[in-house]
Amino acid sequence: MFLYAVKRLIQGVVTVWFIATATFFAMHGVPGDPLMNDKAVLPEIRANLEARYGLDKPIHVQYWIYLKNMASGDFGISFTQQNREVNDIIREHFKVSATLGILAIVFAAFGGILWGALTALYRNRMPDIVIMFMVILGISVPGFVFAALGQLSVVEINDWLGFTLFPVAGWGTVQHMIVPSMVLGLGTMAFLTRLMRSSMLEIANSDFIRTARSKGLPVTRILRKHQLRNAILPVITVLGPSVAAITTGGFVVELVFAIPGLGRYFVQAVQQSDYTVIMGTTVFYGAFLVFMVIVVDVLYGFVDPRVRLE
């Protein structure tokens, strides 16, 4: 078990190195650079700017310096926010994205398991049909539509109530967090519901459930001890990558709800060719994703004793 975890961690480091290298060269391959601005500058000034950021050196030297700094955990200073270190940006804004992400995932997991179990229990009857219809909506409608609709609903609700129940945008209090995290978790919740439903139905048809039933166990006990517990496994499998996807994919929600999360920096950095922020956020998110996958794999061993980790 321990060996397995170590092995996976080493693999993870190699993966992150690969991500960093690919991003580095792709980024430098795109036309335009962070020093380009509305107003053209003198060649002399341009040269000084390049020297300040080390862009005057050949690309392989830059790559080497970059790797060395990364190994010591230093991602440098942002090009667009010239007084901020990338490390500070990640530290200050990741907690916001993480907060949003955790809430969204809690919301998605609770909802997904609950609705999924319900639809399986009431298969082909009214609750199943209604919920599955919503699920199809949830999966097919893109997140930015939900974000816009969610915000518009908040405006209407507040208008109707005559006071601010939920803030329209911004960040900081519990009220600020609820609507954006629900919007962000909606797609994942729909996906998990479907997964949970099919998983539940498959388990329901398996031999050990039939055995349990023939032993005369009460239905609720079968549901709790045997069916739910087994059906939840595939859901846990996708939960790991979902956590990463949600924390990184919150860009639109962060923009619409004016939330100071890292997702915005991640996307804006690419648009502004902000090299250091691109590298910092990509490597950070890459490492985070790899780590979450490993955590899930190890957790799997605990939840399902049949899985042996070697």
Binding site: A120, L121, Y122, R123, N124, R125, R194, L195, R197, S198, S199, M200, L201, E202, I203, A204, N205, I209, R210, P218, V219, T220, I222, L223, Q227, P234, T237, V238, P241
Partner: peptide, 26 residues
């Protein structure tokens, strides 16, 4: 990620469906 087909075999009735939940479990 695991993709599981939504195809229950026709010979078994859909799990606990139809039995409903008793008061205690509620």
């Amino acid at each position: 990620m695991t993709e599981i087909a939504d195809t229950p075999s026709p010979d078994v009735p859909g799990g606990a469906a139809g039995t409903g939940l008793d008061i205690r479990s509620l």
